[in-house]
């Protein structure tokens, strides 16, 4: 019991320190999160000779005899987007909600825009990373203090948002780990919801096993790698949103 009180005190102190560097004044040098829906732009090419030296692009391959040409449909990436974005940022009590199985394109777009143009702060919650048992997606009771601290912080800083990264150790297959990491991020989000956070203020991403905390093949490294990390997304700046 004493320990709990002490750790709660410690958390309060940490939170107080963090408060002074609140996200209304993003630290210099923080990374801007690029839009979640960037355009490929010049990646589009119809000249097969251009493929080899242009950066960040696709490389057309030369047709061979046994392949027939085919044009598919889809959403072209260079379709102009609706320009009426960025002026009316959602308020915290008006976060775009997501209803299961009933997500209109408009709702999807509003959700996406909510996370656009926010500075990314990886240090704020670095000490609050939570860990998982082997092949498990359950949040440990011992990690609930971390979860509560993050929820409390975000409930004070209502213009901030959260990115939750799910990670795995390397002892799962690649696609399996992608799903497992996503499920871990979702479990962390559910726990944050129970701790009083509006779940629509957080987005999740899975990295599977490709970004280990410790790049080694032993049980200690594996235990450290099975985790969810929390990245603070600062206040949306109108300029950043408009620029995208």
């Amino acid at each position: 019991m004493k320990k709990t009180v002490v750790s709660l005190l410690a958390i309060t102190v940490v939170m107080a320190v963090s408060l002074t560097s609140g996200c209304k004044n993003p630290k210099p040098g923080v990374v801007q999160i690029p839009t979640m829906n960037p355009r490929i732009g010049q990646a589009q090419t119809t000249d097969p000779t251009l493929g080899s030296d242009s950066e960040n692009t696709t490389s057309p391959i030369s047709p061979s005899n046994n392949w027939s040409s085919n044009s598919g449909s889809g959403i072209p990436l260079d379709t102009p987007e609706d320009p009426s974005t960025g002026n009316n940022l959602p308020q915290v009590d008006n976060v775009p909600a997501i209803e299961e199985d009933d997500i209109s394109p408009e709702a999807e777009k509003a959700r996406r825009e909510y996370f656009m143009g926010r500075p990314m702060d990886r240090d704020a919650f670095k000490a609050y990373t939570i860990h998982f048992d082997f092949d498990s997606t359950l949040v440990r009771p011992s990690d609930m203090a971390n979860i509560q601290a993050i929820a409390d912080y975000l409930n004070i800083h209502t213009d901030c948002a959260l990115l939750i990264e799910g990670h795995c150790d390397e002892r799962g297959t690649e696609e399996y780990n992608q799903s497992l990491g996503q499920r871990r991020a979702a479990s962390a989000l559910e726990a944050l919801g129970k701790a009083g956070l509006n779940k629509n203020r957080a987005q999740t991403i899975s990295y599977g096993e490709v970004r280990p905390a410790i790049n080694a093949q032993n049980n200690e490294a594996y235990a450290a790698n099975r985790r969810a990390e929390f990245v603070l997304l600062g206040a949306q700046t109108p300029e950043a949103t408009l620029a995208e």
Partner: peptide, 28 residues
């Protein structure tokens, strides 16, 4: 695009289109 999204890429032209880019995981 800093999110796991599903793309289709046409091999002869290099043209790439998004098939699924919902918030969260889009894969397999």
């Amino acid at each position: 695009a800093l999110n796991p999204d599903i793309y289709k890429q046409e091999l002869y032209t290099g043209k790439r289109t998004i098939i699924a880019n919902y918030l969260g995981l889009n894969t397999s």
